[in-house]
Amino acid sequence: MFQALEYLGCGILWIGSMILTIVKKNPIGLAILSIMHGTEYALIGKKTGAEYGKKFFYSLVMCMTFGFTWWLPLKKQIDSETLTEKDFELTEDILAKFNH
């Protein structure tokens, strides 16, 4: 839900920037959004998308459109689900909590 709201917020930013560009002939909004999202894509979005298994074009479109609201949840999920051998050890704590 929050992600949907964040996407909605991004959409509003894009639409606002476009209106600003067309009506006021001021492309500053569009320029800022494009540069910010383009930088995010180059620095982290492309890598995160590939790691998650998303195709290049999909990652590009999503990152350019939604910026960090797209790649940050993916990165969080990747981090939480990247497990090591240690994560699969049956520790005393786990046994105490779930064993009968």
Binding site: G53, L74, E81, L83, D87, F88, E89
Partner: peptide
């Protein structure tokens, strides 16, 4: 086998179907 199976028992992880998933001990 005795392992901690408490990861992803409700939802598959993001890397399902890839070598990293296939190599997981669980």
């Amino acid at each position: 086998p005795k392992l901690n199976y408490l990861h992803n028992y409700v939802q598959l992880p993001y890397d399902y179907g890839r070598p990293s998933y296939d190599k997981r001990p669980d």
